[in-house]
Every structure is written in C-alpha cells, then in structure tokens.
Design a protein around this nucleic acid. Structure first.
Length: 366
RNA sequence: GGACAGGUGGCCGAGUGGUUAAAGGCAGCAGACUGUAAAUCUGCCCGCGCAAGCGUACGCUAGUUCGAAUCUAGCCCUGUCCA
C-alpha cells in the first residue's frame, strides 16, 4: 500500500505555496508508470499492481493532497491527473520514431541516476533506463494538455525534468521550467520521514495522528526553525521568535511545530487530541485519550505478551529483554518479571509504559 | 554463449570444516545524564519458551563429513571483460 510520507512534504508544501500565490497545481500520479513496475530496483515494490489497486492508491493519496490544496474546476484550483491517460495509449514504434530521436544515449549516460549505478557496478535495467524518457514525455503532455509550464520535484527528478524541458522544446518549440528541492535530512543526517520503526506516513490510516504528532514533537533542536518555515504557514516573524528560544524552552516551539503540521495534515481535531494526550501523559503522568489501547481478557495477560500485543516490542523476546532492563512500567512502577500476570478490573485502566516515550492503556475486554 | 569475480543477520562487512546464533561498524531499542532534544557512557539487539531447552539462519537444491556459512555438484541471481 504505497502512500506518501514526510519525505514528500516539501513538494506538497511548495504546491500549496504556489497555489496560495495564484497558480494552478497539477498533481501527476504515476498510474501509467506503476503499471510497468517500480524502477528503483527495490525487490518487493516491484510487484505489478492491478488497475483496481492502483486506483485505490491514487484515491488514498488524493485524500492527503486535499488537505493541502484546494481542488476543483476554478482557474487556480488543483487538479489531479494520471499519466496512464497518455502513457497507456503509446505505441512503442510511435514513441521510438517521435521521441527516440531526441534522446542520445551519450547524454542519458551522463545523468546521475544512471552514472552512479554504472560506477557502482549495480544493475540498471532497460526498463529503468526508459523511465526518464517516459517522465520527459509526461512533462510534454502536461504542457500540451494543461498548459503546464513549471515542474517541481525532488532533486532526484532533476534529470527527468530537464529531459522533459528539452524534449518539449525540440518537439513543440515551447519553453518550460523546472524547480527541484533538495532531499531533506534531519540535523543527524538521516533522511526525513524514514525511521527504523517505519515511515512517517501522511495518511491517518497508516500512522495514528498521535504518533505523527510525536514525530514532530521529538524533532532535533537544530531542526525546529527550519521545519517551522518549511512545513507550517506561520508568519516568519513568529517563527523567528520561536526559533530563538533557548534551552528547554525550545520545547514550546516543538509543540507549536507538532500542532501546526498535524493540523495541516490531519486536521484541527487530531492536532488538539494529540497535544492533549501528550500533555496529560508526559506532564501529568496520567492517561491521554489518544494513547494506544490494549483490551485485556478477563483471565489477564502476561506482561511480556502485553508489550508485544500493544506494539511496543516486535517479539516476546524483545519484550522480555526490555522488562529485564527495567524499562517497562505499569502505572509508573517498574515491573521486572516478564511472566507477571496483569489483570484489569472492570472499568479500570492501567498505564503500560516502555521507556519514556511509549505509553498505552490497558482495559478489560468487554 | 565463454572467461573471471561475487551472493553472509535492517544495511555495510569479517569469517574458508568444529567453543560460530556467526567478529567489527552503522542503524535501532533501553538505562544513566537531560528538556519527550543533542552529545556522551553502559546494556541489549533471529524466533519460541518462566526455564532447562528447542527451532530456524550465511542465494537455492542435492551431496561429502561425527560435524559445513566454510568442501563437492547442479541451478538461480549480480557484476566485469569477451561474443
């Protein structure tokens, strides 16, 4: 179930800003290109999807964009298009004859995406090699169909965008433009949006809003100002003030960051609920409503099993190790026996914590 | 199709018959210190089991051996060069 994670947020915000400035965003979905498979060579994403699944994915991605952009028929309303519209109709011979002459292998070999693979002696299939042609072709189609003049993308799309500009100039004599954004990293140098626990998804279905909020709340001090500028609509002078906070006061700025981004991406309500839960859980030592809940059967559940079931540990073994390390607490009391039987009285709630950050609620199953 | 090199745990990378569930590094998790930060130090880091223990694992399959990630054969995959 592919979707968008935080790594795509810069692009989305850029579209948002441009729409605010009176432009018409066109969101291109790669429905046509996914029919061929994913080019990145990552084993599992390579499986071919049915057109139904592709449609579902597009619909789910659209719900994310709808939070950031205004869709509709007006002159500056955003539209979403699927490159399947034109790619599927392409015939190989026509493509070769019309588009082929405008690409030289010599030049294609100079693009980083290709050059790196060759230098590292990694495989690069003909399929992948062709992606740049299809993507260049997309830009031309967008220019003809929608009078699109500017294409945004990540820096990895530089080659594709430039090829599109070049192809359209040669075939149509139309001048197009491109803007790319750098791949964002955190102050630690890690790619944004990918954690070992999993990606930070923009869709609610794939990441609870509370966790989404926590991701931002836990930003590195050094990232706060930059993230506020990139990912929120707050006025710059306000950001400057927040950013200037020192020591532990910067935490206030992180809360603002988490609230603003969550509000944009998940809605006002989700942001408020997450903030309230964080406040009671961390500051008050109580239980917030947004915490994950585990329903405990009447006969009780062993501590180790509870940690696994609620998702704090990946396996019983890991849960046991953490328990032995004294990291697991019930109602803020460390419990070191993995076999400890937890029983919850009807109507009562027990707080289960692993470490300082993972908290959950145990309730009697009804 | 031919010659050569290679396929090890999330990633990188040692290991060439036996204390090898597999060195080391990165990433990750936890503890201490803190501010739900960073840095640092410490511990953990395949699964199941309360435990003794068991089960899986070094591309795949079959074999040699008391014993294989390590040896043999076939196959699959990747790269380099040749056609």
């Amino acid at each position: 179930m592919p979707s968008l994670h935080v790594g795509s947020l810069v692009q989305i915000m850029m579209l948002r800003r441009l729409q605010q400035a009176g432009h018409k965003p066109i969101v291109v979905m790669g429905g046509g290109t996914t029919k061929v498979g994913d080019p990145s060579g990552k084993d599992e994403s390579r499986k071919l999807l049915t057109s139904e699944t592709i449609q579902e994915n597009i619909a789910s991605i659209r719900t994310v964009f709808e939070r950031f952009l205004t869709f509709g028929d007006g002159p500056t309303d955003a539209v979403m298009v699927d490159n399947d519209e034109w790619l599927s109709a392409l015939s190989y011979i026509d493509l070769l004859r019309n588009v082929g002459p405008h690409f030289t292998i010599n030049r294609m070999l100079t693009f980083d995406s290709v050059k790196l693979r060759l230098e590292r002696e990694q495989p690069l299939t003909f399929l992948e090699f062709n992606y740049m042609i299809l993507q260049a072709y997309d830009f031309r189609e967008l220019a003809l169909r929608y009078d699109c003049r500017l294409q945004l993308g990540g820096s990895d799309q530089w080659g594709n965008i430039v090829n599109g500009i070049e192809l359209t100039r040669r075939m149509e004599g139309v001048e197009l433009f491109g803007v790319t954004t750098p791949l964002l990293t955190t102050a630690d140098g890690a790619k944004m949006g990918k954690t070992a626990a999993g990606a930070v998804w923009l869709n609610e279905g794939q990441l609870p809003s509370y966790d989404f909020w926590q991701y931002w709340r836990n930003s590195d001090d050094r990232d706060v100002g930059r993230f506020l500028r990139l990912f929120t609509d707050l006025p710059l002078d306000e950001i400057a003030k927040l950013e200037a906070l020192e020591g532990s006061e910067i935490n206030a700025a992180k809360v603002v960051l988490a609230n603003e981004v969550t509000r944009l991406c998940r809605g006002d309500e989700a942001a408020r609920a997450a903030e309230a839960t964080a406040a009671t859980t961390f500051a008050g030592g109580g239980l917030g409503e947004d915490l994950p809940v585990l329903e405990v059967p009447a006969e009780g559940i062993r501590l180790g099993a509870a940690c696994t079931a609620i998702g704090f540990a990946a396996s019983n073994g890991e849960a046991k190790r953490k328990i032995a390390e004294g990291a697991v607490k019930l109602d803020d009391q460390a419990v070191t026996d993995p076999g400890f039987l937890i029983e919850v009285a009807a109507g009562a709630e027990i707080k289960l914590s692993l470490g300082k950050k993972k908290h959950g609620v145990l309730r009697l199953a009804s």
